[in-house]
């Protein structure tokens, strides 16, 4: 059962990620991104991180993909004829991917990766909160401040052009 679920989520993640890359229409790509994220959330659940899976779905599926779809429809870009991929770029991409897989392959073949300890307690919500409010209290504050700055940045970015056009 565990294996079946694992391979199902793996297939879902990787197949939809591939479809994000090759699909012609940006809306389809966003939908496949959503599917891929669901697969990753499933893998998170299998890694005993149900809370993170929940947050991933909430933040990505709820906010990021919705934002993407909103922008795609706002910009109204037509799919159009997609140019064939350039040979040099394909070669560079293939080389990069091959290097990455070589690295992981050598890790798989040589490194002594210890097996996970069995019967490890699933981290509770309390454990996360304990970490976030003690060890990582300063990063939490910094991230909150950064969100504020990002919000200000987005407001400035989307406002400046309107006033420039209005002035001109």
């Amino acid at each position: 059962m565990f294996h079946l679920l694992f391979y199902t989520f793996t297939f879902l993640t990787l197949a939809s990620a591939l479809l994000v890359v090759v699909s012609r229409d940006a809306v389809n790509a966003a939908m496949f991104l959503l599917l891929s994220l669901v697969g990753v959330a499933g893998l998170f659940v299998m890694l005993d991180a149900a809370l993170l899976a929940f947050v991933l779905l909430l933040v990505y599926a709820g906010a990021v993909v919705a934002l993407f779809l909103f922008i795609i429809m706002l910009l109204d870009t037509r799919p159009g004829a997609q140019k064939p991929f350039q040979k040099l770029t394909m070669a560079a991409a293939g080389l990069g991917g091959a290097l990455l897989l070589l690295g992981v392959g050598s890790l798989h073949a040589r490194a002594q990766l210890p097996a996970a300890e069995e019967g490890l307690a699933v981290p509770s919500l309390k454990a996360y909160a304990q970490q976030l409010f003690t060890t990582y209290l300063l990063p939490v504050q910094v991230v909150g401040f950064m969100l504020l700055i990002a919000m200000l940045g987005v407001i400035v970015l989307s406002k400046r052009f309107e006033t420039a056009e209005g002035g001109a």
Binding site: L14, G97, L100, L101
Partner: peptide
């Protein structure tokens, strides 16, 4: 790694 490679492509 595969997911990263797909995104990279």
């Amino acid at each position: 790694a595969l997911l990263f490679a797909l995104g990279f492509f």
